[in-house]
Design a protein around this nucleic acid. Structure first.
Lengths: 304, 304
DNA sequence: TACGATCGTTGATTCCGGTTCAACGATGGG
DNA sequence: CCCATCGTTGAACCGGAATCAACGATCGTA
């Protein structure tokens, strides 16, 4: 960047005066004193090395150099203005296109309620709903092919909104397993059975949440075999190769006669909500998160 | 001018960081602290409403919005830089073309000495020498068709340099007039004879200098007829219609048998030098005035 | 695994320059 | 001739640009 760069106030003063050709009106338009205009113009002229305005006490007009400079600068300033306006529109405006996605069809209703409210609030912003799979959920967010995803927390390295869905954890065990006779189990039970592992693509933090390496009391949890998909992991459970803590919804959405579920009474709930790339935090995204929160708010008991 | 305009330092910081993608190097290049860079970028992002850079503690990269803005701004900033550079070149640079003029060929030698020295000092600046007439000298300066003129002082409303030529005043009288018998006369004599008047085109200040309305002691000076050119005025003198104070050079350059000249011992000398439009005070002009002063300096007696 | 090195962030503090203010000078009209 | 209108000038003021130092996060290494 060159050394001749002018300050914003210098350009603004010069161009306004070039337009008004009157110190008083220029000062008024810019909300400053005439003295200021005089100072700034003088300083500019000292920098340029020649008068930019020919001013008698009655009339102000541009010199040849002044006119040339004004003609050169005006479109550039307009251009910068435009560029910033576009950026603000992209960042702060709630227009254009927003791509949201769900992972596992049972979360779709929550997302669709959010889409409905968002579209009602911002009809000028076009929303696309996609479905992603476990393997491409993170890449889709990272390469920008989707803006938001409803997924289970924690979701490493992504920004996330407030939880939209919570559910109790249950332990998946083979049908007929002795544990199925218990009304509920403790997390401590994990130390006594191999635990089926999530695939490597899953983030470390997520795995630690679902299949911890230690029980709350610190006992090590034996690692069972690894499945590549959720269905595959349930199959490993059914085969008796291990147990697996899962969300309660699994009972409904993955109905399998060969797997049984036992509530875990001392595990925190699984939480799900919207996640997105930190760097993609635009007004569109923020507004969608807000709409999702509002649309899925738990209505307080006793209120209408 | 829109309200989204960025400060110079904001644009500079943003574009440098967009280029370096490293806070430390950016800070160093701009000669500020990394803390400053962080503050400025954060403020910008708050204004835009979305992140411009995606920064982990190890890598900094542009977001989509950031890249768009950088691509938009970069050429505009270059353009502004260029525009200012051109203006500075026009104002401060001693290049391009300079048009100088003389009025009355007897002043040409002084001008040509100046041209010679100026051209030696600034070979890259092309100098044109013109001759102007009384009637178009002022318009030529005002419309910019000439930059500088060597003329007699005072020259209303124009900037002027130091005097380059001085000469004693003499009184033009008809040949054979009684005053020709005196070795010299006083300005007071003007009260006793009608004085031929300069034409209306001449400035009031100039006329007051050459054909004053009162003598130094305050006696009124009778007005004689008006001539349209200098030759015509001398002819009026020859015809006995009045007298006229003129410069000594008139004796040599307007040799007329019907006019005689008597020195005026108590009149200040007539001074001539360069005049130019105040609004046209460029480095070229200043340099030419300097060259003219140097080239026509009276060499101090006793020095080499 | 703890440590050091590298980087970006943050909030209190400092200080420079953008801006005001008021007095002044110049010019033209009634 | 005086007043009104404008632009100029220099000193004084104050807000925000920039610093400074402490902190947190991340990665390589012994």
């Amino acid at each position: 960047m060159g050394r001749g760069v002018l300050e914003r106030y210098e350009v603004e003063t010069f161009l306004t005066l070039a337009e008004e050709l009157h110190f008083g009106r220029t000062a008024e338009r810019l909300g400053v004193t005439t003295g200021r205009i005089s100072h700034v113009v003088k300083k500019l002229e000292r920098r340029i090395g020649a008068p930019l305005f020919a001013r008698t006490s009655r009339v102000v007009q541009l010199t040849a150099i002044g006119r040339q400079l004004a003609d050169d600068l005006a479109p550039l300033v307009t251009g910068m203005d435009e560029a910033v306006r576009r950026a603000v529109e992209a960042g702060r405006g709630v227009t254009g296109r927003l791509r949201v996605a769900f992972l596992g069809e049972w979360t779709a209703p929550v997302l669709l309620k959010a889409v409905a409210l968002f579209t009602e609030r911002h009809p000028e912003c076009q929303v696309e709903v996609h479905e992603v799979q476990l393997y491409n959920s993170r890449p889709s967010l990272e390469d920008g092919s989707i803006d938001l995803l409803i997924a289970a927390y924690p979701f490493d390295g992504m920004a996330c909104g407030p939880p939209l869905l919570t559910e109790r954890r249950v332990l998946a065990v083979p049908a007929g397993h002795p544990l199925t006779r218990a009304a509920s189990v403790s997390l401590e039970i994990l130390a006594d059975h191999p635990v089926v592992q999530y695939p490597a693509v899953t983030s470390a933090e997520f795995k630690r949440d679902r299949t911890p390496e230690h029980t709350p009391s610190g006992r090590p949890v034996p690692k069972g075999p690894t499945g590549n998909t959720f269905s595959e992991m349930l199959t490993l459970v059914a085969l008796g190769r291990g147990v697996l803590p899962v969300g309660e919804h699994t009972r409904t959405y993955y109905p399998r006669p060969d797997v049984a579920y036992v509530p875990i009474h001392d595990a925190p709930p699984i939480r799900r909500g919207l996640v997105w790339r930190e760097a993609n935090t635009t007004a569109r995204v923020r507004e969608f998160v807000r709409a999702a929160t509002d649309a899925n708010a738990v209505r307080p008991a006793g209120r209408e």
